[in-house]
Design a protein around this nucleic acid. Structure first.
Lengths: 215, 215
DNA sequence: TTTATCCTGTCAATTCATTGACAAACTTTT
DNA sequence: AAAAGTTTGTCAATGAATTGACAGGATAAA
């Protein structure tokens, strides 16, 4: 079905299409053309058609795209038609925030466990899930069909924990630790380096101020 | 000094260079060649030289780059040599997590205020800063030289709050709300759409499984 | 000092991504 | 039923980003 490699540039845009289409669907919109969608999303219509075509023809000439259908297809492409069990390692504010974020559940991401090395946190509940000590991590991963591990621990230790996770069968890591993980071929890592993002913002502020002579 | 527009592709790589150089510096490394750095960071040496050259020649033939110097220069480019006051709007888990993240302080990002519409949270302290009610937001922004506003509220309301922020002089928004903000020219927005990031991970898991015939 | 080696800055070549243009196919109107 | 109007899928053209190659300047070794 899918033969050629899809570029990450395209993949990166899919969630945004998905979001807009979901909103349109909720508003009861039945069909939309690439032209209309392009105005709404502020991208070119050509890019939209090109992007969708990577996955086959979802539209129809003279009609456009059926919102509901397109929404579902993109959902499938993103793998949202199946369940993913995830655990969180690091039960600090960020780990708890992600555990409490119920929207993930709606997309098929099921919160199954949370771990922390701090014994003070052990037993505390996050959305009905008890914080477990790190000693239980490997066993839990082996026994509970964990697809995704969310790393919300300081960078010290993150590399080591990632190795343990991979060794016990985790296939994907959502990495909030500020360090690059070195995982074997076939293990997916998606980095969320918050301070990198903040620095980009800082750069753009500086640049803007320099342009305007405010510095 | 800086004339030509630097592409966001380059800007996006600067924080990572900055991180690696900081670590090298902390390890006492004095000099490094693009070749060595490329092996460490797993990018091409050509890209490294090309990237740095956007900002002028930081290196020297036959020597390489001075780690300390390069680190500082990139810091300056990123605007980390000056202070940025920031406030957080939304004192849920995520807002509190960001407020408590002391590393931002080290980079010159100063946590000045946090707001929430929930009266139960009013008065609660996050790293020495009292949660204020939303009614105080606009006044606070006007009076306290706020550079960056961090939006950690649900998407309902985010657009409206962003408008208020801009109207009162905020120049940059770090947006964690799952919605696109529509701000005037000159206001910087850096989006952190966590669920988009998670969907990308999900896509890559699915793709890998399909490749291997596991689906 | 001289020679060999190293390594940047930059230009050119290549690859990748985006945009523009239009034939073909469908929908709507007359 | 025919004509007019839409809108996709795709090809070609353009633009942007990455990689490769190397001259020339600096360092290190002999």
């Amino acid at each position: 079905m899918e033969e050629k490699e899809i570029s990450q540039a395209v993949i990166g845009r899919l969630p945004r299409y998905f979001r807009y289409l979901g909103e349109l669907r909720d508003e009861g919109v039945e069909r939309i053309s690439s032209q209309e969608l392009s105005e709404l999303m502020k991208v070119t219509a050509s890019q939209i058609r090109q992007d969708f075509n990577n996955f086959g023809g979802f539209g129809q000439q003279g009609y456009g795209y059926n919102v509901e259908y397109l929404y579902n297809e993109i959902g499938k492409i993103l793998g949202l038609d199946r369940k993913h069990n995830f655990i969180i390692i690091g039960a600090g504010n960020l780990g708890q925030a992600l555990g409490n974020y119920t929207n993930f559940e709606r997309r098929g991401f099921l919160f199954k466990g949370i771990f922390d090395m701090d014994p003070k946190l052990a037993g505390k509940e996050v959305r009905g899930v008890r914080v477990m000590p790190m000693e239980k991590l490997e066993e839990f991963v082996r026994d509970n069909d964990v697809d995704i591990a969310v790393l919300t621990i300081p960078k010290t230790g993150a590399v080591e924990v990632a190795e343990k996770l991979v060794k016990n069968g985790v296939r994907a890591i959502w990495n909030f630790a500020h360090v690059d993980l070195n995982v074997p071929e076939g293990v997916m890592v998606e980095n969320v380096h918050l301070s990198d993002s903040l620095m980009k913002l800082s750069y753009n502020i500086s640049r803007y101020m320099k342009e305007r002579g405010e510095i």
